[in-house]
């Protein structure tokens, strides 16, 4: 073979064929596992309570808008249709395993069942996702703490400021606080929401700083 007498084009062609032949005998790179789980670390983290975020913390952070969250609703599509946290996307644990969500954001998973959320948390952690949180008490927690928080009417001044804040947050998400006095509900009208969840506010408010929960955009051309 007189390699130095060949034209550049022929050399390149030869190189390509050579690489092709090597590829023939190479193990399928799409099947290479990149998941390296450190069981000790995982066990430690799963015991750690910092993986939980309470509905109120989440709501406050969304309103502040300085952090970016991807909210993943793990419930069934029918429940998701009925009402969810603004900008949440509906996925199954299986979807999460197929790498459909990006790693550049904080991920908050929620469901109506904390076991399911914890499974999702474990799956994501095992796939080396860094910032994954479970919404404490799931969507029920969101309803009880954000959409329809119980506000006692007879309060001291210190607690008043606190409940004022709760009402603000609740209103922001289109919820309506329930005022209770000595255990009795004052405002009963809004309680109907609970029986007919179809009326849950879906995308009730346009978020002023939408950066907080960004709608994933199609990546393709």
């Amino acid at each position: 073979m007189k390699l130095n007498k060949m034209s550049t084009n022929k050399k390149l062609g030869l190189l390509a064929i050579l690489l092709g032949i090597i590829a023939l005998f190479t193990k399928d790179p799409a099947k290479t596992s990149f998941v390296k789980v450190d069981p000790k670390n995982l066990l430690f983290e799963s015991k750690n309570t910092t993986k939980f975020i309470t509905p109120f913390e989440l709501a406050e952070k969304i309103i502040k808008g300085t952090e970016s969250f991807l909210l993943v609703d793990l419930r069934s599509p029918t429940e998701y249709e009925k009402g969810t946290i603004p900008n949440a996307i509906n996925l199954t644990v299986g979807d999460l395993l197929e790498n459909v969500i990006g790693r550049n954001q904080q991920i908050v998973v929620f469901s109506d069942d904390d076991t399911k959320s914890l499974n999702a948390w474990l799956a994501l952690k095992a796939m080396n996702y860094k910032n994954v949180y479970v919404l404490k008490d799931g969507f029920d927690g969101w309803i009880n703490e954000i959409l329809h928080p119980k506000i006692p009417l007879d309060l001291k001044d210190v607690d008043k400021a606190k409940s004022e804040k709760i009402i603000q947050v609740s209103n922001y998400f289109g919820g309506s606080p329930i005022f209770v006095s000595e255990g009795k509900t004052i405002q009963t009208e809004k309680m109907e929401f609970k029986q007919t969840p179809t009326q849950l506010p879906k995308q009730s408010v346009a978020l002023p700083k939408p950066e907080a929960t960004k709608k994933p955009k199609r990546e393709g051309c």
Binding site: T26, K27, A30, T32, F34, N99
Partner: peptide, 20 residues
Amino acid sequence: LGVFFLGAFGLLDINLIYFT
């Protein structure tokens, strides 16, 4: 070829590349 061999050397997770 680049994607294939980078993947084979464990430098690139092919499954994370957006695939239409």
